[in-house]
Design a protein around this nucleic acid. Structure first.
Length: 925
RNA sequence: GCGCAUGUGGCGUAAUUGGUAGCCGCGCCAGACUUAGGAUCUGGUGCCGAGAGGCGUGGGGGUUCGAGUCCCUCCAUGCGCACCA
């Protein structure tokens, strides 16, 4: 009987569904294993062959661990809120709820065809109220929490309120956050706190809440009509859609992820994640140690506070620079410079983020006419405004030390400002000396010290004078959390007398209201402002922004543990059993976005005692991207003529993408091409060798590039098991590679060879019940060991070739013995589940192969008696000699030197003979 | 500019600890069988060379009895960050 994958795959998919084979329950006492895929956004384009790569790998791990006796949690769901559905809704008027549901059912059909072992009873959809109810609930917990810098964790806001009631607020006390937001908070006494109005108290508390409302500089994307978080902006353009982004000051909900900067950085050491992801997170967090220094203003009250990592160079300061947005600029500018400064600031703010970034190399700035006093020399130091200083980092002001900082140096050269050498070792005539080596010179009390020592001494002195203190700064910014969009979780907040309040937990979920059109209002308010009669308790205005796409994905791994719980986001029993993800698989593009928010929310929920773990996933692997191979035709400009790729140099042409399905092996099917698009109907062609060759290029797989390959097509032709094996066979999981069906036949033929080995006749395998030989047992046990070792280190491509080698060897041995073949069915079950299930039943089993146990390999079948030693002379292998492995090093050496072949290569006694037992012999002459 | 990956036959790749480089598959070459197939089976296939032999893991250098693997340096490609004081 032939291997009829169409019948087999359909049959077992139905069986698994009916038997609920993949349903998982918490079983205390049984060891658990949690395998998680990064869930997909269900786009209208459906799955392409790149998506399942990771899903197949994680499915193999799940099935393998199950066979190994683990209770495996392997769920799937959908990251279902997001911009594309909403953009589509704006264009077509279709409710995003409907298109999202349609897309999800398409995804589900495609996923089912591949034969995954997901427990679909735990499916989640972030856009459904039974899920986003808990996303809103977590937001409420964030709102009612603050970060205590003494205990280094989140605590209920009530604790802060009672501290205010007893002691007031001392901004210099260490437990209070001091960052860019909090600097606007003034100290107050307990009595003053008690005297404050509700509004005043609320404003103070917003400076501490982990979810807070504030005026903040945000990334505003006019084309999308919304604010974006930093990780959603790439090079000044929106990640989704590629629209320009500008800076805008607006009232905005944010999450205080900066409070967790230190822990997010520190705990990276404890998790088994790719070094590249950890490094990206370290860079994103951007910790730097330094000190603040306050420079007293001349002719004004107050001071300019700077942050520097090089307080040792304080004697080399020749000017101060403020960011154009700095609040002091307006205040301190001298009358005679006012118009010039205003012009400069205006010019700076008119620029887009993009323009600012591309003009990085251009030096620009403007003197304000103001001066500060040098804290140690008393010298007057001019204050400038310049774009190279970022408002959002540190204090938005720098002390410029041109001798030892590249940017300051360029600035000083450009404006002819003094350059002072204070660390010896370089030549400040030529360039800035930025190395942290050398001795301090021209630096008062720091003279003669090394850089490290000088930094230490300088901080001590600065702190002694009370003009600053040692500080750690982070590049990480708080995350903008409100989106001026419709298709997201409503933020569960209403406003009473201008004060934000969260709704009662018992009133959750706050449902997304129905509106007539998904566009912003005429006055520019977010779409939710269109909702009629949408008021809290009929009285109070709701918040009209919604949560960003990453809200729902920041905690979803917990919901799978207890997906249908209506009382809690996850039960204690479930989370105590499943703990955290053991194996998390997803794309590398989430290194700093999703994965940072996920870790942040996990730590927060841990702090409040809701969950027992402070990291979401112990092990993370990034699967590589499967790229598309696009095909191109070359149209001769201004004509309907297309020239074959090899001849295109002779003409002026424009390359056009052509659908890969009408250009098999990059040879254009001319008839199909003419039918493909109406305007190509009368196309003419210049051929080479009688055919039209297309150009090829590796690009991202996408609809617009006509290079998408649908797994459904591969399955129709070869079956899901072939697709699964082939995707694994393509190479290491982490590596990106272009999709090519070259070689898929090899994998398919391998399955057919395996199938034939089982001698299937009617509805059973006709196998020999004979005792296996030593050679056969060796093949079996070698394969078991290889497959086990390779899955454990997530090396799936090598497992597939191990299966192939196994079949080749058993074919050579003409083995058709049950004792050998039956365990092999269990071995391959994680990779080719339908195939294995069919064979398992043909072998006479009544139960599913998924309930079998993974076979154990035994050393006794693998021991070798002899070894064919390669003998190398001076490192070059010259001949081989078969010797017993029982021989000692000396005996091996004697055997080699006595052998007939050695005389061809050496005369007399060798200098040295190295014997590595069981490996190699090297003779040095 | 900085950081992180990755460079091995015509192609995808393998070599888990420094120990026979090229397993497995594709492709290609030769052959067998035939109910002529996108089937199956056998043999061959890193490069140069008729052969003996030589050369070979991006280039150069080093450590070592021995290097794809370790160290230094340069080059190429991909990704991330980029005025972060």
């Amino acid at each position: 009987m032939d291997y009829n994958f169409r019948v087999i795959e359909e049959k077992w998919q139905r069986y698994w569904r009916e038997q609920q084979t993949y349903r998982t329950h918490e079983t205390p006492g049984q060891k658990k294993y949690y395998v998680l895929d990064m869930f997909p956004y269900p786009s209208g384009a459906g799955l392409h062959v790149g998506h399942p790569l990771g899903y197949i790998a994680s499915d193999i791990v799940s099935r393998y661990k199950k066979l190994k006796g683990f209770n495996v949690l392997h769920p799937m769901g959908y990251d279902a809120f997001g911009l594309p559905a909403e953009q589509y809704a704006i264009q077509t008027g279709q409710h995003p709820k409907l298109t999202t549901r349609q897309n999800i059912s398409r995804y589900r059909e495609q996923l089912d065809k591949i034969g995954f072992s997901y427990d679909w009873s735990r499916e989640i959809r972030t856009c459904e109220p039974d899920y986003y109810k808990w996303t809103q609930w977590i937001f409420i917990q964030l709102f009612h929490s603050w970060f205590n810098c003494l205990t280094k964790k989140a605590e209920p806001i009530e604790k802060l309120i009672s501290a205010f009631e007893q002691h007031g607020l001392n901004c210099n006390a260490p437990q209070f956050l001091t960052g860019d937001i909090e600097k606007s908070v003034q100290s107050f006494s307990a009595a003053e706190w008690k005297g404050m109005t509700e509004k005043e108290k609320s404003d103070v508390l917003l400076n501490f809440r982990l979810a807070y409302l504030s005026d903040a500089w945000v990334n505003w994307c006019p084309a999308l009509g919304t604010v974006l978080a930093n990780d959603e902006v790439k090079d000044g353009f929106s990640e989704r859609g590629g629209y320009p982004v500008e800076r805008k000051l607006m009232k905005q909900w944010s999450l205080r992820i900066t409070a967790y900067a230190e822990r997010l950085l520190h705990d990276l050491d404890d998790i088994d994640w790719p070094e590249s992801v950890k490094e990206a997170q370290r860079n994103w967090i951007g910790r730097s140690e330094g000190t603040s220094i306050r420079f007293k203003l001349v002719n004004h009250d107050g001071f300019v506070e700077v942050f520097t990592t090089r307080p040792d160079t304080v004697f080399g300061v020749s000017f101060l620079t403020l960011a154009p947005e700095h609040e002091l600029v307006n205040l301190i500018t001298a009358p005679e410079y006012r118009s010039k400064v205003e012009e400069y600031v205006k010019g700076a703010s008119a620029k887009s983020e993009r323009e600012r970034q591309t003009e990085v190399k251009k030096v620009s700035g403007q003197f304000t006419g103001a001066y500060v006093l040098h804290p140690f020399t008393g010298e007057h130091i001019p204050v400038w405004v310049a774009e190279y200083v970022l408002a959002g980092y540190g204090t938005g002001a720098v002390m410029a030390v041109p001798g030892h900082d590249q940017r300051d140096y360029l600035f000083a050269k450009h404006f002819n400002l003094p350059i002072r050498e204070v660390v010896s070792g370089g030549n400040t005539e030529v360039e800035a000396y930025t190395a942290k080596e050398g001795l301090l010179v021209h630096s008062g009390f720091l003279n003669g010290l090394g850089v490290k020592q000088a930094i230490h001494e300088a901080i001590l002195e600065i702190e002694k004078l009370g003009i600053g203190k040692g500080q750690v700064n982070y590049r990480l910014r708080d995350a903008a959390f409100g989106r001026q969009r419709y298709w997201g979780e409503p933020i569960p907040v209403f406003y009473k007398d201008g004060i934000p309040h969260t709704i009662e937990e018992s009133e959750l979920p706050l449902l997304l209201p129905e509106i007539d059109t998904f566009q912003p209002t005429e006055s520019g308010e977010p779409p939710l402002a269109r909702a009629r009669d949408w008021k809290y308790r009929g009285k109070y205005e709701y918040e009209t922004t919604t949560m960003p796409g990453w809200a729902g994905s920041s905690w979803y791994f917990l919901r799978y543990m207890d997906a249908n719980n209506e009382k809690e986001f996850v039960s204690k029993e479930a989370v105590n059993y499943w703990q955290q993800v053991d194996f998390y698989l997803g794309g590398a593009e989430h290194a700093t976005g999703h994965l940072l928010y996920l870790r942040f929310w996990t730590k927060f929920l841990f702090d409040l005692g809701f969950i027992p773990v402070k990291e979401p996933a112990r092990k993370l692997i990034n699967q590589g991207m499967i790229q598309g191979v696009s095909a191109f035709v070359y149209r001769i400009n201004g004509t309907h003529k297309f020239v074959s790729a090899g001849l295109r140099d002779q003409y002026e042409t424009t390359p056009l993408h052509v659908d890969v399905s009408i250009a098999p092996n990059h040879i254009l099917d001319i008839e199909k091409f003419r039918d493909w698009r109406e305007d190509f109907g009368d196309a003419e062609f210049i051929l080479e060798d009688g055919i039209y060759r297309c150009g090829a290029e590796v690009e991202k797989m996408s609809k617009s590039k006509y290079n998408v390959v649908n797994p459904d097509d591969i399955i129709a032709e070869y079956g899901a098991d072939t697709l699964r094996l082939y995707e694994m066979f393509l190479g290491p999981l982490e590596q990106s590679k272009p999709w090519s069906t070259q070689g898929i036949n090899g994998v398919h033929n391998f399955l057919r060879r395996w199938w034939r080995m089982f001698n299937i006749s009617g509805d059973r395998c006709v196998l020999s019940e004979e005792e296996p030989t030593a050679a056969e047992l060796k093949v079996l046990h070698k394969t078991i060991r290889k497959v086990e070792e390779d899955v454990e280190r997530f090396s799936f491509n090598t497992t597939v070739s191990a299966f192939m080698i196994c079949v080749n060897e058993l074919s050579d041995l003409k083995c058709h013995k049950r004792a050998i073949l039956e365990p092999l069915v269990i071995l391959i079950a994680p990779y080719a589940p339908h195939f294995a299930e069919e064979l398992w039943h043909l072998l006479g089993h009544q139960n599913s192969v998924t309930s079998a146990s993974f076979p154990e390999w035994k050393e006794e079948y693998l021991v070798e008696n002899d070894f064919e030693y390669p003998v190398s002379i001076n490192g070059k292998v010259r001949f081989k000699i078969n010797l017993s492995l029982q021989l000692s090093k000396e005996e091996v050496e004697q055997n080699v030197l006595r052998s007939g072949e050695i005389v061809k290569f050496i005369q007399g006694t060798p200098k040295k003979v190295i014997v590595v037992p069981g490996r190699i012999v090297n003779v040095v002459v």
